[in-house]
Amino acid sequence: MKKTWLTAILAAGALTLAGCNSDNSSEGASGEEGGSFEPSKTIEVVAPAGAGGGWDTTAREVARIFGETGIIEENLTVINKEGGGGAIGWAYIHGQDGSAHNMFVASPPLMFVPLNGQSEHGHEDFTPLANVIADYGAFAVSADSEWDDLNDLFDQMKEDPESVTVVGTSAPGSMDHMQFVRIAKAAGVDPTKIKYVSAQDGGALTSVLNGSVDVFSTGVGETVEQVRAGNIKVLGITAEERMEGEVLSEFPTAIEQGIDESFVNWRGFFGPPNMDQAAVDYYEEKFKELSESEEFAEVRKKYGWSEMYMDGEEYEEFLDNEKQEIQALLEEIGLGN
């Protein structure tokens, strides 16, 4: 177990090194050739999930904005490779070794799923292109709940952990569960005593509304409408600082409640392994342009996403750190693989 982790770090390190090397060499090369990479055919963007979900929406919106603004002139098509919580799509992209015309959209499950032993491929197996948006987690309770902030909730959990049930959409050890564990642990709750159930098909929100469970761990976006209608209240969000926007700006962060922890649901794009450095540079720049465009700002506003651009190198470093932290947490609660 430990061994694979070590190899993973080594591999990641090696990749970064390799990245640096080729970076240097291509800089030398581009001095002679100029822009060096231009896509020559349709770019395939894989959403490793079915239509209509978060990955699919992000991929399609990004592809649309690239097309409408002309930032990338070549066509981008989104294809869905559903299955295994993403693993099937990742395996597919992994098979496109070196291609400069394939990429996929990813978010924290790219770390959670391999950490749970459900995929051979993790972020270190791919070429990070750029992160574009950030989303945050929210912990919501029914509007008539006795708790008014996270500390009320966590005090109760410290006192009587059996009395509080948390619900989320994903399986234990995955995002909805771990974002809660992470914040709760920072607040001093015993992470091995957290009761978590997973519910699909709208069951999670339903169960909170009818009082079957107590806390809903989810994305910020999923709570806004229910908060506006007065059905639920958000005790805290996992962002570093307050978000912008109507309703969103009213959600207190965990940090301002004295709990020094955050969690970001990052969303960005990766290419197949060994993508040419010239192509990586090209996409980095295009994603930066996209991220700064007014059109994409509209999209972010529509879905309540925040801006979070990172270039490939920064992205990789960020992910390596995140993965280490999550790994440690998973091991602490006995779900490490």
Binding site: D201, L205, T206
Partner: peptide, 14 residues
């Protein structure tokens, strides 16, 4: 309610 009761209505929500 904004609650999708099935895979189909989840896509519809999308």
């Amino acid at each position: 309610l904004g609650i999708p009761g099935s895979g189909t209505t989840a896509v519809m929500l999308g």
